[in-house]
């Protein structure tokens, strides 16, 4: 495994007590694999990505668990050490390309600087490679546009530059947080195709955080579904999309408006996700769950084998299985 996250717990101390934003999150990603992380806003999916790249917003802190990159812990490294890993071994792509790019530097300078920070390259070599990366991500006339500033690019082009920046030091893992959310569908399709090609050709592992199940279905090999700071289901994309085992995943899939037909009434999950300061005891989904029974209200289910996926749901607790 390239990345292993074990029982990760992230807490936010506030005036009114400690909020647990992530609770017992465990998963792993292999080289060349695309893991999709989905969930509604506030579920903790971006927080998981931020914890992995060591960029949790203070006062948020890792309060438990481990993050391992190629078997070596990276969650407790000193800042300077982590900075060497970030960029070199873990690349990050964020939702808004404007906040990632420095508006005062040409994109060429930003690429060259990033590469020289991590790789022993001369100026000429770095520039040559920068042009190569821009071509890779599909920027036309890269040799001319390398000296342009971010504002001279359109949104889709900027996101490509951000991807080139994340790739240029050749990281083994890319954490992409809503990389296509700010983009139009036709550009989104181009970016998805690019990410898939990277995973296939460069064996780059990708953690793709998004709320868009369509993007996940097209891109990911496996999916983790998050709810109220926990992974409630994880498994191969086909199984999770078609044969969801957790009632929340099933509800989420059913509420997506279908493109291929008109339905009289969309399936909906009543209510909304609990806030961090009011997570119910037992299963966090129990107040909204159509299959709720007594056990769900008092005791919290851990991930357990359920069909072809793992789901945190008591419905799948067969007699004899460990609970």
């Amino acid at each position: 495994m390239l990345l292993e996250v074990k029982d990760l717990r992230v807490e936010f101390p506030t005036r009114r007590g400690v909020l647990t934003a992530l609770n017992g999150v465990s998963f792993s990603i292999a080289p060349g694999e695309v893991l999709g992380v989905v969930g509604e806003s506030g579920a903790g999916k971006s927080m998981t990505g931020a914890a992995i790249i060591g960029l949790l917003e203070p006062p948020g802190r890792i309060a438990g668990g481990e993050i391992l990159l190629e078997g070596r812990r990276i969650d407790n490294l000193p800042l300077a050490e982590m900075r060497k890993i970030r960029g070199k071994r873990i690349g990050a792509i964020f939702q808004d390309p404007l906040t990632t790019l420095n508006p005062l530097y040409t994109i060429g300078r930003q690429l060259v600087e990033t590469m020289q920070a991590h790789l022993p390259l001369s100026d000429a070599e770095a520039r040559q490679r920068a042009i190569g990366w821009l071509e890779q991500v599909g920027i036309p006339a890269a040799a001319q546009r390398i000296d342009a500033y971010p504002h001279q690019f359109s949104g889709g082009m900027r996101q490509r530059v951000v991807i080139a920046l994340a790739l240029c030091a050749e990281p083994q893992l890319i954490v992409a947080d809503e990389p296509t959310t700010a983009l139009d569908v036709s550009i989104q399709a181009q970016i998805i195709a690019l990410l898939k090609r990277l995973a296939r050709e460069q064996r780059t592992a990708i953690m793709l955080v998004t709320h868009d199940m369509g993007v996940i279905a097209e891109t990911a090999d496996r999916v983790a579904v998050m709810y109220a700071g926990r992974i409630i289901e994880i498994g191969p994309v086909r199984q999770v999309v078609r044969h969801a085992q957790h009632p929340y995943t099933a509800g989420l899939m059913a509420s997506i408006p279908p493109l291929d037909r008109k339905v009289e009434r969309l399936a909906q999950i009543d209510g909304s996700m609990p806030r961090l300061n009011a997570i119910p005891p037992g299963c966090p989904f129990s107040p909204r769950c159509p299959h709720v029974f007594e056990r769900c209200r008092v005791s919290r289910p851990e991930l357990m084998p359920a069909g072809a996926t793992d789901a945190a749901c008591w419905l799948h607790d067969q007699p004899g299985a460990s609970a």
Partner: peptide, 12 residues
């Protein structure tokens, strides 16, 4: 536009 929309049915 229709071609570009990621679709759940298109998995893989």
């Amino acid at each position: 536009l229709m071609e570009a929309i990621p679709d759940l049915e298109m998995t893989g």
